[in-house]
Write a protein that binds this DNA or RNA. Sequence first.
DNA 1: CGTTGATGTAATCGAATGATTACTTGGACT
DNA 2: AGTCCAAGTAATCATTCGATTACATCAACG
Lengths: 202, 202
Amino acid sequence: MAQNGTQRRMSSDERRAEILLAAHAVFGARGYEGATTDEVARAAGVSQPYVVRLFGTKESLFLAVLHDALDQLLDGFRAELDAPADAPAQERMGAVYLRLLQVRGLHQTLSHAFLLGGHPVIGPAARQGFVKVWRFLRDEAGFDADTAQSFLAEGMLINTMIGLRLIDEVDADDGIHELFETCFPTTMRAVRDVAPRGDEPW
Amino acid sequence: MAQNGTQRRMSSDERRAEILLAAHAVFGARGYEGATTDEVARAAGVSQPYVVRLFGTKESLFLAVLHDALDQLLDGFRAELDAPADAPAQERMGAVYLRLLQVRGLHQTLSHAFLLGGHPVIGPAARQGFVKVWRFLRDEAGFDADTAQSFLAEGMLINTMIGLRLIDEVDADDGIHELFETCFPTTMRAVRDVAPRGDEPW
DNA sequence: CGTTGATGTAATCGAATGATTACTTGGACT
DNA sequence: AGTCCAAGTAATCATTCGATTACATCAACG
């Protein structure tokens, strides 16, 4: 995170984009309530008041992160749908989902948002986002209901395994190793390279 | 939650049990950081300092809730395993899982814990709990790896749908209705009766 | 009945945190 | 070279929250 080499000032839109990226990581690791605007600010290399100024409130920053995550997800899915089909749709969408692990914290932020259904502002936004994903799978990707359900379920399991930092255990525990091989039969190596480790704060 | 009719004093163990029950609901709805010891106290009908006294710290209260959730889950699974088999194991364990929805917040608290893998204290406890569930499914319930993975995945999807308060949308949105029917083909009514609604704080 | 230990609370403290205010700095454009 | 606005920060405020302390109250027992 933080500054690239250039010391020069950025446009507020560039800065917003950097803060958004940092916020994915911080909200993903700590959750909405657990994250602080100061952590986000330091991860983005700016001061805490500036984060507040560019996004208004912590709540609207979280909403921005949530929308960004959903946009990246659905845009990625759609781009893959438009590309020439070289494999079953479910595998292709799954690959897109795993590729997004490179955006640190994105999956965990989604999971955090999905657990806040009782929140007066975040709850409705999260529900709406989830429904949009379901609709995409059914209406655009052409999944039948059972396939869409399994796809979502596996996605939630992946989010859980990432959020748990289970990767740290993969070499120490045979059961976990087996779980990973079951869940990521072909992509194990790629996932290991990109998933967050326990020895980094996020 | 809160007091039953009796005004009489309780033993500290009885009180601890009541507070634990309330804490499931509060931590489930708000997450570890979002929940306050005062909310837990009011939900349990005691004062905030007393919650702290009976559990030491908020962190150890959360750990107690986490362990309680895992105990209830694994004890329920084992009791069902010991009962005469009247259906495939996967269905029977799934029924146990859904029955636990009656413990308000239990599933969501588990999901919250599973997202805190980076936390120095909660992280290791959550990982250990998750591994115990996996080992149970494989070693005691006799699930093969693929079945265990699907079972866990569907569980995580259920947690998500509960945490999202998706039930509120089930009559308003055809996609959600369809998702529920796919996920809970036979148990839809029971789930609807027991899942938390958006109009209650938890 | 009075002592004693456990149950329980009111009051309050200190640290953390989101937000606000007032200020500084840099660069684009005459 | 001077003006002016956008980018950015330091200082600080008000609130919230977990924890501590000191105090109150109930009931068991001699």
